[in-house]
Design a protein around this nucleic acid. Structure first.
Lengths: 223, 223
DNA sequence: CATTAAAATGGACAATCGTCCATGAAAATG
DNA sequence: CATTTTCATGGACGATTGTCCATTTTAATG
């Protein structure tokens, strides 16, 4: 069992990381100072140097934590999905657009770190691995879909589908960042599935999405 | 004619704005200090307060300038496009992915400002108007396409197409931000046109894009 | 309970931040 | 050329930054 010693220690580490993320989400990176952090955490000034060896390392740890949290949430959702690749893709897309994952706090944090990623190698790394893991999950699913279809040498199709889906999700996140109040999760999902049903008509349909009059007016993908 | 007085004045203002953008692109926002700016501009410390009334206003002006530059570049390209809406859309997409617009410097600057946009109203505004103008241009084109098709009440289709295209472009920019060396402009364009040809089969085809073996292996959209 | 070791405190510290102004340079005007 | 007016300079300034350590507190151990 963990002694009260280490228990407190870990608790304070987490408090510091949480304070960084709160501050980044509310005030942005440039206003996230040591004073701001320790005030939010309710701890003393020396703690940052004690536990992380400096502010930069703490911020890096916070970025790492945020990245893990995102991926854990997505993976938890994926556990509840069926085994078929199209079910998995659908769950990833809907998960990535769900309130649990796509909310003001996460989006603020994510884009704040991205903005500094180019100039802070360590942060860029986490930004990258998060995207990398997501890409792997999606690509696996599309690769299975393509394989099932039986078309030879269609690795490029899976790649394009992965690329397009990720780009669309990314764009939707940006939409949310700029206009969190106007954002429509259903509409975002509908557009992505339109793209997918165009690429894999037999695997994806628009039945899941809310039909608009506009959609009904359009000719079906393959009449 | 402009006296040498005002000529120098304007020249120095531009030098300051340019210095901010260079610094933001190279070092990021958090390291763009007054000292850094005036050193790059080769001017004295007091100039910022003299011409802009403070650092924040200068940074804001720089964001504005960058936004204008982007839009001007895109509009210049649009002048060379034909009148048909599909030609205009194609030009916007290819323009937005062209070296002229999508390069390391612009991307660094753009995402750096985005990261702070949520917490700096003035910057968010320019980030917004840039996107707004682009959205307007694209939506106009799609609205014409939909109107030509003659399907009644398909305003939603134009909206979806606009939304999807912007999201895809946004995603491609992020791709470039994270992996400028691996980025493939042709592939990015191909994926976007695949989306568009799925939505408007009669208006967009994939002929313009480089065909891969994978693409040939796939069944045509509507056989 | 006494002792040891680990963890937490909060202020000292130099460095840097952005602002502002007294001074000097230079162009425009008479 | 003399005068006026605008622009440019660079250092002073207080505030704030992040780091670090001497001290105190507190949990663990004998």
């Amino acid at each position: 069992m963990a002694g009260k010693r280490e228990q407190n220690r870990e608790q304070n580490r987490q408090a510091l990381i949480g304070a960084v993320l709160d501050s980044v989400a509310e005030k942005g990176i440039s206003e996230t100072s040591v004073s701001e952090i320790i005030q939010r955490a309710g701890l003393s000034r020396g703690m940052i140097h004690l536990h992380f060896g400096g502010k930069d390392n703490l911020v890096q740890a916070a970025a790492h934590h945020s990245s893990e949290e995102y991926y854990d949430g997505l993976e938890a959702l994926l556990q509840t999905a069926g085994d078929s690749p199209q079910e998995r893709v659908e769950m990833i897309v809907r998960g990535d657009l769900s309130e649990r994952v796509l909310n003001r706090r996460n989006v603020s944090i994510w884009y704040a770190f991205r903005g500094e990623a180019r100039n802070r190698t360590a942060i860029a790394e986490y930004s990258d691995t998060r995207d990398g893991r997501l890409r792997g999950m999606i690509h696996n699913a599309f690769a299975r879909i393509v394989r099932e279809a039986g078309t030879p040498d269609a690795s490029g199709a899976a790649r394009d589908a992965t690329h397009g889906t990720l780009a669309l999700l990314e764009g939707m996140w940006t939409d949310f960042l700029l206009h969190p109040d106007r954002f429509d999760r259903e509409e975002a999902a509908r557009i992505i599935f339109r793209f997918l049903s165009a690429m894999f008509p037999t695997h994806f349909s628009l039945k899941g999405a809310v039909r608009t009059t506009a959609e009904e007016a359009l000719p079906p993908p393959c009449a």
